[in-house]
């Protein structure tokens, strides 16, 4: 069953992005569908809404765009 740590929610995404910069793929790995119980489409949609709300900073690391937040 999904635990509070694997649930896809704004606070969980915020915690990850404060800890370290992450690509979209890094974030998707943290919220795998088999753990959250969401479909792929739901995961993409929810994560997009959360990122729009958080409006994280962006920077390129090794030519890949990473999101991050400061506390």
């Amino acid at each position: 069953t999904p635990s509070s740590q694997t649930a896809l929610c704004l606070d969980a995404v915020r915690r990850y992005l404060i800890r370290k910069p992450m690509t979209t793929k890094d974030l998707l790995k943290k919220f795998q569908t088999k753990r959250t119980g969401l479909s792929s489409e739901q995961t993409v949609n929810v994560l997009a809404q959360i990122l729009k709300r958080l409006n994280p900073e962006r920077k390129n690391i090794s030519d890949k765009m990473h999101f991050y937040l400061t506390e």
Partner: peptide, 20 residues
Amino acid sequence: SSSEADEMAAALEAELNDFM
């Protein structure tokens, strides 16, 4: 699979492109 992850990442980036 990694290809599904790639597809999801691409879809997510496409969603965010309008915004970014």
